[in-house]
């Protein structure tokens, strides 16, 4: 019984070898037409000349990538230096999304484990309890989150009324507010994949370890966590990647004082700048970054106990 599940390695078999083309065909057709084709358009656009105020001119150009990596001063005629502006924006977004992911994992894992260990008939109810709030639109959730966190909102007034704090925490328009907003936006995307994995976890493994006098937190760290690793990885991806390109939480909760990747790219298509090739190039760079990240996370885990 133990084997695959205990080591956390992905179970693979060749059961459906002959059918694989047919199994993959729907995904290939749908995504090939609806994602790959539009994305190819964007890839092409990133190498074209920008048309002033939006659109492209069909002439090859590396200007968009040049703008991303090299700083030529306010007027564009100084000798090129490394451009830190956009790297800074990317770094800040990664940091925010990373913090939101860690926060989601810290809250999401115990929740998922707790739900998966409920009696079978109760589990669905708990899962729905976690997902029901997401029937309400993201924008409304974000706005009401802001309302709750405001200096004169219920949270601060409640804490002041019971004397825990003497003046408002001043959360709105800070990085913390953005992280809380992202966390709130995507929490079920962490809980559900982990739940689906833990639900499958064979508790006998934990019990065997306990019989050998392993402390319970060691069991959690050494046995449970590696076994449900695919669920955790899936959850982290589903929270981290959308957070990276999100701009609702940064705009509404963070005050939009600084660009995030999402708002930077949006500005290129919907803002004054109207620089489509640059927006396309920034997306391609983001895409490459995330792809590398994904490939790293998809590598099989190191087996055995450290």
């Amino acid at each position: 019984m133990a084997g695959g599940a205990a080591t956390g390695g992905s179970v693979q078999s060749e059961t459906y070898r002959e059918a694989r083309t047919w199994l993959l065909l729907p995904a290939w057709v749908t995504l090939g037409i609806l994602t790959l084709a539009p994305l190819t358009i964007m890839l092409v656009y990133s190498f074209l000349t920008k048309e002033f105020r939006g659109g492209v001119i069909w002439e090859f150009s590396l200007a968009a990538y040049d703008q991303f990596f090299f700083d030529r001063g306010l007027f564009g005629d100084e000798p090129p230096r490394i451009e830190w502006t956009y790297i800074g924006i990317f770094w800040r977004s990664i940091w925010q999304a990373g913090a939101a992911t860690v926060l989601s994992l810290l809250i999401g894992f115990p929740t998922a484990y707790f739900i998966a260990m409920r009696p079978q008939k109760e589990r669905a109810l708990w899962v729905f309890l976690v997902t029901i709030p997401y029937w309400v639109n993201l924008l409304i959730r974000t706005v009401s989150m802001k309302f709750l966190l405001r200096d004169e909102g219920p949270l601060n007034e409640g804490l002041m009324a019971i004397g825990l704090i003497s003046e408002p925490l001043g959360i709105v328009n800070t990085n913390l507010a953005v992280q809380l907003g992202l966390f709130y936006s995507y929490l079920p995307f962490m809980v559900l994949p982990i739940y689906a994995a833990v639900e499958r976890y064979n508790l006998a493994l934990s019990e065997a370890a306990a019989d050998l006098y392993a402390p319970r937190w060691t069991i959690l760290r050494r046995i449970v966590l590696p076994s449900v690793r695919p669920g955790i990885v899936a959850g982290c991806i589903l929270v981290f990647v959308p957070s990276l390109g999100s701009f609702l939480a940064p705009d509404l909760l963070g005050g939009a004082k600084t660009f995030m990747i999402g708002s930077l790219i949006e500005e290129q298509f919907k803002g004054n700048a109207g620089n489509w090739p640059f927006g396309a190039a920034a997306s391609m760079i983001l895409l490459t970054m995330v792809l590398i990240l994904l490939i790293l996370s998809a590598r099989p885990s190191r087996k055995g106990v450290r």
Partner: peptide, 9 residues
């Protein structure tokens, strides 16, 4: 555009 980006970077 550059000034605006500088402002929001």
């Amino acid at each position: 555009d550059q000034i605006w980006t500088n402002l929001k970077k």
